[in-house]
Design a protein around this nucleic acid. Structure first.
Length: 472
RNA sequence: GCGCCCUUCGUCUAUCGGUUAGGACGACAGCCUUUCACGUUGUAAAGACGGGUUCGACUCCCGUAGGGCGCACCA
């Protein structure tokens, strides 16, 4: 047997779990699943200033909602600081690191100077080989990694190919801050090594770090894990994903009424593909997933396509499962709690019967909520007499005819009602369909396109119908 | 500024030297439906540009342009 696959998802808790992070998690998860391995979760919280417990909770919650479960407990990177410090000392002992006494001001000046001279912005190695006995008093030193200055570092990346970075472009990064706390690049290497991570799958924004980290692995004589850097997800305009676009936390997607399965499917197709397959289950994703099929160019986030996929998943979800998802969704949307409070056994029964007709017309759970609203409308609601007066004779006739059907209807089953109305319209020679729009427009003053349910909603404002509604 | 990476329909993508460059979303048009939606049929829509290599390039190489990422005592 080959060695077990261990991947990890390592978000920093400085904000919500954004869509790019969600995809990274999905890929790590899928790869581990496919190989019968494990996906570990590590919270990169070494930046104590910016890390918050709220963000940690949001990330864990988001992953759970997406159905991307991890193995074991989430590891706090900060909690492993002692081990990181020990490795820093080991690097010092090996002559692969050194103390640097430059102050923040000096570094700023160094940077400004380099920028002004249009020279690469890098640490100039002031303390690299300097005798520490000349160290200024009262300055707490940082520990910098002694990066090779000659040659090049090769990152054999599963997605990016063989990436070669000149070592002269890798400056001596700080691995231990002056306050004694480790920095990201050191912590990542130590943790990935200690946790037995075999495959690192993360965003390309870490590609240069991969070169730096490779040098640290080498300095410690540790095996370098398999690396895969996936292209980033951009906003609709091709620019970096920002809050203006879809750089929202996954909870925002939940509030917008998207199904986890749809998001998984959509995200999988961003930067990865399996021939012409567009719609596939998560099981199929796991079966097909491979690092070699990950692309190199960035993808733009397209809400229209996500919505289309979501509509597909809503339509293809069994009524009871969909109703369940809807109920789960309710607490996360405004007005949902009130609706949820009204759902009892009787209402559940109504919802179940309406679900088949409703789900055909909803692309999101938010739209499903709109469609279902007529079942929750308080009755009786007054009919707008003024609006009715605006209807022409044909309109009034149609309204009357439909009312006749509805008042004798014994079932609120949506398709059945629709069929009944059709039968009636046919018998009366009424053009209900053609009238629906002006009917609705006249009654509500809105120009939104009507559906049979919109009409029923409108008609539901009539007292006689309200009585029927109450009996159901 | 320096380094690395990217570039096929509006968008996501297939193609791994030889195809009428395929699919999906979106758009448009038709059909179905006495509304909407679903479904369905069809149409328009792409190899950034310039050089090579080759019998033959979207595909390989070089250059140009455009774009992305990185260059913190952030991760």
């Amino acid at each position: 047997m080959s060695s077990p696959v261990i991947t990890r998802f390592a978000p920093s808790p400085t904000g919500y779990l954004h869509i790019g992070g969600a995809r990274t998690a999905l890929f790590n998860w899928a790869y581990a699943q496919k190989h019968g391995g494990k996906m570990l979760l590590r919270i990169e919280d070494t930046d104590r200033e910016r890390s918050t417990q709220g963000a940690v909770d949001a990330i864990l919650d988001g992953l759970k909602w997406l159905g991307l479960d991890w193995d074991g407990d989430a590891v706090s990177q900060f909690g492993r600081a002692d081990r990181h410090r020990a490795v820093a000392q080991e690097l010092l002992k090996r002559g692969r690191a050194y103390h640097c006494y430059c102050t923040a001001e000096e570094l700023d000046a160094m940077r400004a100077k380099a920028e002004a001279a249009k020279r690469p912005i890098r640490y100039d190695g002031t303390w690299r080989d300097r005798d520490t006995s000349t160290a200024p008093a009262g300055v707490k030193p940082v520990i910098r990694f002694k990066s090779p200055q000659e040659g090049e570092t090769v990152v054999n990346d599963n997605a990016q190919g063989r990436v070669v970075i000149p070592n002269k472009d890798l400056d001596d990064l700080i691995i231990l801050r002056s306050d004694g706390n480790p920095t990201y690049n050191l912590s990542v290497v130590v943790d990935d090594h200690d946790m037995g991570v075999t495959h690192i799958i993360r965003g390309v924004d870490h590609l240069t770090n991969a070169a730096r980290q490779t040098q640290i692995y080498l300095a410690m004589d540790w095996a370098v894990p398999s690396m895969t850097h996936v292209p980033l997800i951009h906003g609709p305009d091709g620019a970096k994903l920002s809050k203006r676009h879809g750089a929202l936390g996954v909870e925002a997607y939940r509030e917008m009424g998207y199904l986890p399965a749809a998001i998984r499917n959509y995200l999988a197709r961003l930067g990865w593909s399996h021939g012409d397959d567009e719609i596939f289950s998560t099981a199929q994703l796991v079966e097909w997933f491979g690092l070699e099929a990950i692309g190199k160019s960035p993808a733009r986030f397209d809400f229209a396509k996500l919505e289309n996929l979501n509509g597909h998943y809503i339509r293809h979800t069994a009524d009871d499962a969909l109703l369940n998802a809807f109920v789960q969704f309710l607490p996360h949307v405004s007005g949902g709690a009130e609706m949820l409070a009204q759902i009892d056994a009787a209402k559940t029964s109504q919802l179940m019967r309406a679900m088949a007709g409703l789900k055909e017309r909803a692309k999101t759970l938010v739209e499903l909520k709109t469609g279902v609203a007529f079942l929750f409308a308080k009755r009786p609601l007054p009919l707008d007499e003024k609006a009715v007066a605006l209807l022409n004779d044909e309109g009034k006739s149609a309204l009357q005819g439909v009312m006749a059907v509805l008042t004798t209807a014994t079932d609120w089953n949506a398709p059945a009602l629709e069929a009944a109305v059709k039968v009636h319209a046919e018998a009366q020679g009424l053009k209900l369909g053609k009238l629906a729009q002006p009917l609705r427009a006249a009654l509500t003053g809105t120009a939104s396109s009507p559906g049979i349910f919109d009409v029923l909603d409108v008609l539901g404002r009539d007292e006689s119908l309200a009585r029927i509604g109450d009996q159901v």
